[in-house]
Write a protein that binds this DNA or RNA. Structure first.
Ligand SMILES: NC(=O)c1ccc[n+]([C@@H]2O[C@H](COP(=O)([O-])OP(=O)(O)OC[C@H]3O[C@@H](n4cnc5c(N)ncnc54)[C@H](O)[C@@H]3O)[C@@H](O)[C@H]2O)c1
Ligand SMILES: NC(=O)c1ccc[n+]([C@@H]2O[C@H](COP(=O)([O-])OP(=O)(O)OC[C@H]3O[C@@H](n4cnc5c(N)ncnc54)[C@H](O)[C@@H]3O)[C@@H](O)[C@H]2O)c1
Lengths: 209, 209
DNA sequence: GTCAGATTGTGAATTATTGCACATAAAAGG
DNA sequence: CCTTTTATGTGCAATAATTCACAATCTGAC
């Protein structure tokens, strides 16, 4: 099947999901995994796993399965997460700090290279991870100087749109937004919203069924 | 259409999404909203909004639109988020604390009534929100005594499965899991996983296209 | 070298979701 | 009170996603 067929968004989402089980299998020194095993680990259908992967080419061997190591590499290639991505973050309260201090992002190639806040109390402080807090007035310049590609927003909701606008003006094309508002964005730009309340709402709904 | 047709999961997800724009319209003293306006605010199709809502009954008025206030109430009723839900949380590092201190959950009826950690240094500490950190050994008892209905997991990944097992033993039916592992769960139980890396992976993929 | 067993890759069938398009109904204006 | 405007609710067609089912193909045993 390979390239140039339109790949469903849902497939991309699942392919990313396959990474963690594969990492786990690597740790356990499992050389090979079947679609059935991988499917079970991710709670999806085995045919789904095979179809998802076949969008990108035939990585498996019939009668055998998939090489764990190779598949991991291939998926990272597919997702373009086989390289470093440079992140900026604005809003250094609890949430922003939790993200900054979290070590797993770096393990996956997501590296915070600048941290911004508008609070003069915070600006200039040196963070344990080796960054100095920058004022929001410097976003535009530093996005360019440091080649920031993904902008994270963890400000209060009231400031989120302004920050997004600054990011966009600075040329950022992708935003990970933790504030509970729907950002207005230029056509070309990507936004992923994170809102735990939606997860809780979903649980509440199902619990009440 | 009303009840007893099988309601798509995607509909539930979107209906929850409609809440924030509606809250915003309330703040702006907007009495009425059209499916077109609401759709635009959520970046979905207007027909989709109408269909989603019509699963649960005809809340709108033809030629007019939807009463913002009433729709808000109705949606909360649908999602069962028109009442208080009692949460427990295990794992009080950065992420757990950010969640605990976050005020918006309470605004939506999600209330942390107990916080657990295995670290003896933390157990017994009084948190600013008025809870005392409990040892994990007390989870089972407190889930029952305090009527905890949703269990949040923000422990390190290595402990997450154990904690989930304890939650389940204690009779919890729904879990919000922030640790990057796929939990093994009894049939009857619900899990929502939160993993920002998936969001970043998705952005990376699209940026690379 | 052949056969049994395993498991992929994929066309076709099934199931689910989305969006159009229009009949329907309320409101406002004349 | 009739006409125009507006915007909902929904049947239906189109599109999309999932799952089945099986031919294809590899491995290993004998
Ligand atoms: N913090 C995040 O942004 C984030 C994001 C996604 C998932 N998670 C998950 O949520 C759970 C809780 O995350 P968290 O951020 O609260 O905790 P964490 O595991 O990221 O670490 C919390 C704090 O403890 C420190 N720490 C990390 N490992 C340590 C160790 N071995 N010994 C001593 N100190 C250590 C870190 O520097 C950090 O300050 C984990 O399962 C994590 O994978 C967290
Ligand atoms: N923290 C979370 O768990 C969480 C969850 C979902 C979304 N978010 C969003 O992420 C963004 C950042 O969240 P956050 O938790 O870092 O910040 P926050 O807005 O939740 O508050 C951070 C800290 O500041 C304190 N605070 C809150 N409002 C304040 C005020 N008006 N004046 C002084 N102090 C105040 C809080 O007690 C908390 O300790 C926000 O947009 C928030 O809605 C956060």
């Amino acid at each position: 099947m390979s390239s140039e067929t339109k790949i469903p968004d849902a497939t991309i989402e699942r392919v990313a999901l396959y990474l963690r089980p594969l990492e786990k299998l690597m740790e356990k020194r499992n050389q090979v995994v079947s679609s059935e095993k991988l499917a079970e680990m991710c709670k999806v259908n085995p045919a789904q796993v095979r179809k998802d992967l076949s969008f990108f080419g035939g990585f498996g061997v019939r009668g055998v399965g998939y090489e764990v190591h190779d598949l991991l590499i291939e998926i990272k290639k597919i997702l373009a997460s086989d390289r470093e991505w440079r992140l900026g973050i604005v809003g250094l309260d609890d949430m922003g700090m939790a993200l900054l201090y979290h070590k797993n992002f770096l393990k996956r190639g997501y590296k915070f290279v600048a941290a911004f806040d508008s609070d003069p109390q915070k600006v200039g402080k040196k963070l344990p991870i080796g960054l100095v807090v920058q004022p929001v007035t410097k976003i535009k310049q530093l996005v360019k100087d440091l080649d920031i590609e993904i902008g994270v927003i963890t400000t209060s909701p009231s400031r989120a749109q302004d920050i997004a606008d600054i990011y966009f003006e600075a040329g950022i094309l992708a935003i990970l937004n933790f504030s509970p508002i729907q950002l207005r964005t230029p056509e070309c730009c990507l936004v992923q919203n994170v809102d735990f309340t939606l997860n809780l709402d979903h649980l509440a709904y199902k619990l009440s069924q």
